[in-house]
Design a protein around this nucleic acid. Structure first.
Length: 963
RNA sequence: GCGGGAGUGGUGUAACGGCAGCCACGCCAGACUUAGGAUCUGGUGCCCUCGGGCGUGCGGGUUCGAGUCCCGCCUCCCGCACCA
């Protein structure tokens, strides 16, 4: 680690170095030349089958298509470090391989440019976010170009381009204009809902009309309210995650488990506000079920499953006076053991259920010291709402709550159960109310213990059980009434089924399924985001801006900074920056009933909106007539076989998006599918999460970081300027003083060496440490490959049209097979090892003065072309080819040369290798055994022993089992 | 606590159930050199009495044969976590 990144680069050939050696200076010259030529000739322009970008499709019409892409970067001001390109290079190598191997390859790149960090960076620097963002995009684009990636530049765009976000807004309108038909299990346009309501063939969905009057009797405005309540994008007043420090609300996914903002780490509070929501919960079942049809890693699928959080159980209704409390439980079998009921503090029935006075003799633990239930409840509710999630965690989960002063009837026992509110019951999950079964639930047991509530066991714990809640299985006890008995049942599923049957028969409940997934909070109080294509009319109801008026342009303003508050000011109210732009917020429109004044929506969309559908726009980002041409969508993303989900063939990106981006994008895609805009059911058929590159960082005795590049190691100890330092392992960053950039590496070695090094350090999915010192190994490999083709002294091509020897052919075809395997499995390190083997074999077989057979040298160049494309282009041209190597066919291994004439096989005695024998490759078991017995050492080992068994595997080994 | 993944030389890694460590970095030796932080060649898992022995986190099992398959632990990484 003592080596610094920068090394002499552009000096003239040093003394003693052959003039035509593949030095960093030569590599850089070659790379710049080829990058210019690729751009000039449009080498990586991918033809579409139809439309604007279809020129040249004839050439690829008979090829299969491959669409592969990276998660597009967020152009922050920090620039790229050596960790960032790993995934981009992985797709680039794959893209180049697939093209050479005969596919029509689409490999585009774009920029995700709206969002908080860009806005914050702009606020810091005092420049408009568009200016800083576009500068950052230009910088990253230049870095990527210098790496030699084969993106089709014509398809590049940023999510902030009005020509792009116009269609983001268009999709929003489609979602706003749709509702989820539960019977059909899919989204449909709201016009169809209205038609069915008008025709009387459909009733409004439960909960969409609080008045409960028949549809035909509703006023126009009330009808619109009912329809709005059905929409997939809807306004909703509910407790949301309000982050005063950022001045915006956040989605559940953007809040960390300890109740802070993922961006900025500010406290987040639950606060009721009216916000735009996306009804992703309607798709919970399909989002869950279709995971099984995707070629994604188990870990990402499992994370999505956990996030969706499907639970099956039962709804059970408890009578409480003239009200009904509905609870959700996964254990209806334990209903006989329910000894109290708990509502979430925010539950809508709390106020109505709260009694006027405590009965005489109320346990003081139940009242929290308040004079009346109402006082106790209101105090508890206030306390719960003011507490951030973080505070809740800090209290080590001690159970708190208060009694409402009322009871509810256990439907199966008739017993009167006290009703509490407690913050261990969460609003928004299930019904926001539970039946508490302390005998079989740990949390309920803790609460019962703290409040002196009775415990009734309904599952017999095993002998020796040490008390507390018993959550295991066992025979049912104490579970018998005149109407139903579960006693003696030992199978949990059977007990659940029996109780559920009784609940249904008696009308007290039914089986149901709930999800942890909540609807997606879709509005932000930010400037730097897509404006909503929505205006409000005189009734205060939202109206869609007509498609013909899209895009709704983000107005240019002087003051785009968000209104933020003290971190802990939980009662502050969001103020979107756009609400200050008064000349923009009011607008006169004709929405079919004459020109009228409207008020614009001043929230903006969250960062995730632009990334939800960008893969579709790559197909033709310049199309200003439609989001995507359906024919292009079918060609690039459509199902390959009936039942196939379709989607991008390879999507590479970081694990950090396992839930957020990937779940939102799947949701939007399914809506677009339901509405008929895309034929594919999923956006990303195959997902690969590339590993991270980490690095060592070093701190001195004061705890300050010291430049990692200048730390020296001796005997396992590390020092900087002669003083010992501590080593830690983790992220790469400027502040950690261990930053190494691709530009530095390209300056020291050239892009090809950097590419080969990054690809050689392990399978794409694996995380790995950065080691600047090891990069030189890749440089040496490329130098040796260069030397196979070019005479370092004269610069002449040193290949000859002569037949290679059999050894050479075997080495070549073994390498071809290995490289193909590595490419297919994204284990480029294996492919590079095989290329190195072949190169070493050729170097050994052909001295500096011996020409290398063209029929071996050329395939070697083709093998390395996806990895080191500039070097390969240069050698390919010097070998006399005029067309780019990018379109040359990738070598195919010939089976004949993958088998040897003779093979060395190991001879084992009792599983231990004792000798090697050389036999013809096609020697059968008998011949193998005979050869083995003839071998001197084997004969000695077998002498005087009984051979009980011989296992002879042709081509592999012989094993004598002796005693 | 629950879920997912991983443990192989000094380091990154490789190995259809069949010779553990391919290919590299580093290190050692040599060549060419005024010089080497360049380049090239060779060596390099550990132990050894030079016969060999031991080795893929630990302990069992299946098998003629296990880094690989099965069971039970340990450690590390990632995610979730009062979700009824």
């Amino acid at each position: 680690m003592s080596q610094t990144a920068s090394q002499p680069t552009t000096e003239p050939a040093e003394e003693g170095v052959p003039p035509h050696r593949y030095t960093p200076a030569l590599a850089q010259r070659i790379e710049l030349e080829w990058q210019d030529r690729w751009e000039r000739e449009g080498t990586f322009h991918t033809p579409n089958p139809v439309g604007r970008l279809s020129a040249g499709f004839d050439r690829v019409a008979d090829r299969p298509k491959t669409f592969l892409m990276d998660m597009f970067p967020y152009p922050s001001g920090a620039g790229l470090h050596v960790g960032h390109p790993l995934g981009y290079l992985g797709t680039d190598v794959t893209s180049r391989f697939r093209r050479m191997d005969g596919d029509n390859v689409l490999h585009p790149m774009g920029y995700d440019a709206f969002g908080l960090p860009a806005e914050q960076y702009a606020v810091q620097t005092g420049q408009h976010p568009r200016v800083t963002t576009e500068a950052n995009i230009a910088a990253i684009r230049a870095q990527l170009r210098r790496l030699g990636v084969d993106h089709d530049e014509r398809r590049t765009f940023a999510t902030i381009d009005p020509g792009y976000y116009r269609w983001t807004q268009w999709i929003f309108l489609k979602i706003f204009g749709a509702w989820f038909d539960e019977e059909a299990g899919k989204a449909r346009p709201v016009e169809e809902l209205v038609a069915e309501l008008d025709a009387g063939t459909r009733e409004p969905a439960p909960g969409t009309d609080p008045s409960g009057r028949p549809w035909a009797e509703l006023s126009d405005v009330d009808k619109r309210r009912v329809v709005d309540a059905h929409r997939l994008a809807y306004l909703h007043e509910a407790p949301v995650n309000w982050c005063p420090g950022l001045g915006t609300v956040l989605s559940n996914e953007e809040v960390t488990p300890d109740g802070r903002s993922e961006r900025g780490n500010f406290p987040v509070f639950r606060r009721p506000l009216t916000q735009w929501m996306m009804r992703i919960t309607a798709y919970a079942e399909r989002l869950l079920a279709d995971l099984d049809r995707l070629d994604w890693s188990d870990s990402v699928k499992q994370m999505q499953r956990n996030w969706i959080g499907r639970s099956t159980g039962a709804r059970i209704r408890f009578a409480a006076g003239d009200r009904t409390i509905e609870v959700f439980t996964t254990r209806p079998d334990t209903l006989f053991g329910a000894t109290y009921v708990v509502l979430a503090p925010e539950h809508p029935l709390v106020a109505e259920l709260t009694a006027d006075a405590w009965p005489d003799g109320t346990d003081p633990r139940w009242t929290a010291g308040a004079a009346t239930p109402r006082e106790a409840v209101e105090a508890y509710q206030r306390q719960a709402s003011r507490r951030s999630e973080l505070d809740r965690q800090n209290e080590s989960r001690e159970k708190t709550g208060v009694w409402l002063g009322t009871t509810a009837a256990n439907p199966v026992t008739g017993g009167e159960l006290p009703v509490f509110i407690a913050d261990y019951v969460l609003t928004g999950y299930g019904t926001g109310a539970i039946m508490a079964v302390p005998g079989e639930d740990t949390r309920d047991w803790e609460f019962a213990h703290a409040f002196g509530l009775p415990v009734v066991r309904t599952v017999q714990p095993p002998a020796g059980f040490d008390g507390g809640a018993y959550t295991g299985s066992g025979p049912m006890i104490n579970s018998s009434s005149e109407q139903v008995s579960l006693d003696g049942l030992t199978d949990k599923a059977a007990a659940i089924a029996a109780m559920t049957d009784w609940l249904v028969a008696s009308g007290h409940g039914e089986a149901t399924t709930t999800y942890k997934l909540r609807d997606w909070l879709f509005s932000r109080q930010r400037y730097w985001g897509e404006p909503f294509p929505v205006v409000y009319d005189a009734d205060g109801l939202p109206r869609a801006v007509p498609e013909s008026l899209l895009p709704v342009l983000l107005p240019d303003v002087d003051d785009y900074s968000p209104k933020t508050f003290a971190d802990d000011d939980a009662t502050s109210t969001p103020e979107p920056p756009l609400s200050r732009v008064t000349e923009w917020t009011t607008v006169e429109l004709d929405l079919g009933d004459g020109p009228r004044p409207y008020r614009r929506e001043t929230n903006t969309m969250p960062n995730w909106a632009g990334s939800c559908w960008y893969y579709l726009r790559y197909l033709d980002p310049g199309d200003d007539t439609q989001m995507v041409d359906p024919e292009l969508e079918r060609y690039w993303l459509g199902p390959r076989t009936p039942g196939d989900v379709g989607g991008v063939d390879l999507y590479v990106g970081g694990m950090e998006h396992a839930v957020l981006h990937l779940l939102y994008a799947r949701f939007w895609h399914k809506v677009l599918h339901d509405l008929g805009y895309v034929s594919s059911e999923e956006p990303f058929r195959r997902l690969v999460n590339q590993g991270y590159i980490s690095a060592y960082a070093y701190t001195d005795e004061r705890g300050f970081y010291v430049p990692a590049a200048e730390v020296v190691e001796e005997g396992g100890r590390f020092s900087f300027e002669g003083r010992p330092v501590n080593r830690e392992y983790g992220k790469i960053g400027k502040s950690l003083k261990n930053m190494v950039t691709p530009d530095e590496m390209i300056g020291a070695y050239g892009a090809d060496t950097f590419r080969v090094y990054e690809m050689s350090t392990g399978p794409l999915e694996q995380s790995r440490p950065w080691d600047t010192k090891a990069v030189v190994g890749s440089q040496r490999l490329l130098q040796r490959i260069w030397r196979v083709v070019v005479d370092e002294g004269t610069g002449a091509v040193r290949v000859a049209d002569e037949a290679p020897g059999e050894d050479g052919l075997r080495a070549l075809h073994k390498a071809i097979a290995g490289v193909r395997d590595g490419m297919a499995t994204l284990r480029f390190n294996v492919g590079i090892a095989r290329i190195a083997e072949l190169t070493n074999a050729l170097t050994a077989a052909y001295g500096a003065d011996t020409p290398v057979p063209r029929s071996v040298a050329e395939p070697l160049v083709l093998l390395v072309a996806p990895l080191a494309p500039h070097l390969a282009e240069e050698l390919w041209a010097r070998l006399g080819h005029e067309e780019s190597v990018a379109w040359a066919p990738f070598p195919v291994a010939d089976e004949r040369w993958l088998v040897e004439d003779t093979v060395q096989v190991a001879v084992q005695v009792n599983g231990k290798v004792r000798a090697q024998v050389t036999v013809p490759a096609d020697a059968d078991a008998a011949a193998l055994e005979a050869a083995a017995r003839d071998e001197e050492k084997v004969a000695a080992q077998l002498a005087g022993k009984t051979v009980r068994r011989v296992v002879a595997v042709p081509g592999r080994l012989v094993n004598f089992v002796v005693s």
